[in-house]
């Protein structure tokens, strides 16, 4: 390999590959950089320049977004951030708590309804959530859960749970039965084997599934906009959208808000990347 690398032709090819990759990176990053530039620019309209470099950087928009308060003096941004965090975390926790045992049962036990149940779950994934917006609205209304975080979590869970079941089912199927059987022979109950051996081995999948449920809820807009009506119940995507009013667009605030919304997800990805790499089960069985 190293001998080949010294040949001029190979060097040229490598340069070409890197140039191509750099181009792809620029292509992917350009819009993001634009948003950053917009957020840092003092004005409210996009600057008419090709390079996304703010002329006079300022944090004015961030300040404006973060310090938004209602007419009654309630710190709105704080409430809305809390709404988003609570909704997303609750969705994620609900999905994992319900899906983990369900997925394990579907992966390991053969029972009446296992197959048709799996198919039904799959079918539920085929419909876009919006298609159910009106019936869900009526249901939530009947349950007096409109304009509440619990109502929103309930709605998000209806799509997060089946998805999580699918993810985790295949993860559990990938864990050799031998591991559980070894634990059971070693003195564990079936539940003990599940908790002590299967769950740790499935940790990467659990992390990814939880993260995915979190992100879906965190980013969701249409259903939130349909079911939430009071400003202090809004989640952040609705807040963002509100900066793009009918008559004026607060581009700066919108950009600053987008960055603030993206940061937690990025941080989560960073924190979980060790798990995302996976491979934790490797080495447990076989040579």
């Amino acid at each position: 390999m190293s001998a080949e690398r010294r040949r001029p032709g190979a060097l040229l090819a490598e340069l070409g590959v890197h140039a191509l990759l750099l181009g792809a990176v620029a292509f992917a990053l350009y819009p993001v950089l634009w948003v950053v530039a917009l957020a840092l620019s003092p004005g409210d309209a996009p600057e008419a320049s090709i390079l996304p470099i703010p002329t006079a950087p300022s944090l004015r928009h961030f300040e404006a977004v973060v310090t938004t308060t209602s007419s009654e003096g309630v710190w709105l941004f704080g409430r809305q951030l809390a709404n988003s965090v609570i909704t997303a975390v609750a969705t994620s926790v609900t999905a994992i708590v319900i899906a983990t045992p369900a997925a394990y049962a579907l992966a390991r036990f053969d029972f009446v309804g296992a197959r048709s149940g799996t198919k039904a779950l799959l079918a539920s994934q085929m419909f876009p959530g919006v298609a159910a917006a009106i019936p869900l609205y009526l249901l939530l209304n009947a349950l007096s859960l409109l304009d509440t975080r619990s109502g929103l979590v309930l709605v998000y869970a209806t799509s997060a749970v089946p998805f999580a079941i699918f993810q985790l089912k295949s993860a559990f199927e990938g864990i050799p039965r031998d591991l559980e059987e070894a634990a059971m022979v070693d003195g564990a109950t079936r539940f003990g084997a599940f908790v002590r051996v299967v769950l740790p081995a499935a940790r990467p999948a659990l992390a990814i599934t939880a993260l995915f449920a979190f992100m879906t809820a965190w980013n969701e807009f249409i259903l939130a906009a349909t079911f939430l009506s009071s400003e202090d119940m809004y989640t952040l995507p609705i807040v963002l959208q509100r900066y793009m009013g009918e008559y004026d667009a607060q581009w700066g605030a919108f950009a600053a808000g987008s960055i603030l919304v993206s940061v937690p997800v990025m941080a989560l990805f960073y924190a979980l990347q060790r798990n995302l790499v996976g491979g934790l089960t490797s080495g447990g069985v076989k040579g």
């Binding site: 022979v185 081995a201 934790l280």
Partner: peptide, 19 residues
């Protein structure tokens, strides 16, 4: 149940706990 039999088993796949 297996755990009440006081037997130990060596599996073909070894079945070591990976974590």
């Amino acid at each position: 149940a297996p755990r009440d039999r006081d037997v130990a088993m060596v599996f073909q796949s070894y079945a070591l706990y990976p974590h």
